[in-house]
């Protein structure tokens, strides 16, 4: 409801060496917790963080297909919470609905997106 910001709050995805996607996040240097975000401190303990990359592999923790229009998105679209290997839980899109427990890989796309492997 406030003033418009040009900042995009979503995780940053970069291309990995194999053409997959990697999340450019942070890892806490105090408690080692991973975070998908470039926030200034660790969400878990408040400790200092250093750059870290996560992915591309992960496991679907839960998933849904949204059937209603949301903001500027056209339904239906599939979303999943994915636990990246040794990394954070992230919210990602997928072209097709994903079963819980499925192995997925992160794609090199502007927005977090996964597909089954």
């Amino acid at each position: 409801m406030g003033a418009v910001s040009s900042v995009d709050p979503r995780p940053v995805v970069v291309a990995g060496p194999a053409g997959d996607g990697l999340v450019e996040g942070r890892r806490c240097t105090a408690c080692a917790e991973p975070s998908a975000f470039t926030w200034p401190a660790c969400p878990t303990c408040g400790g200092p963080v250093e750059p870290a990359r996560f992915g591309p592999g992960g496991t679907v923790w839960s998933a849904t297909v949204v059937r209603i229009p949301v903001a500027d998105r056209t339904p239906p679209y599939a979303l999943a919470y994915v636990d990246l290997d040794d990394g954070p839980r992230v919210l990602a899109h997928s072209a097709a609905p994903l079963p819980i427990g499925a192995r997925v890989r992160l794609l090199a796309a502007a927005e977090l997106k996964v597909e089954r492997t």
Binding site: D8, P9, R10, V70, L79, L91, A92, L112
Partner: peptide
């Protein structure tokens, strides 16, 4: 839209 998951399309029903 200033929330990461909100911006990603996670409506509350989702």
């Amino acid at each position: 839209p200033t929330d990461p998951e909100g911006r990603t399309g996670l409506a509350l029903p989702a």
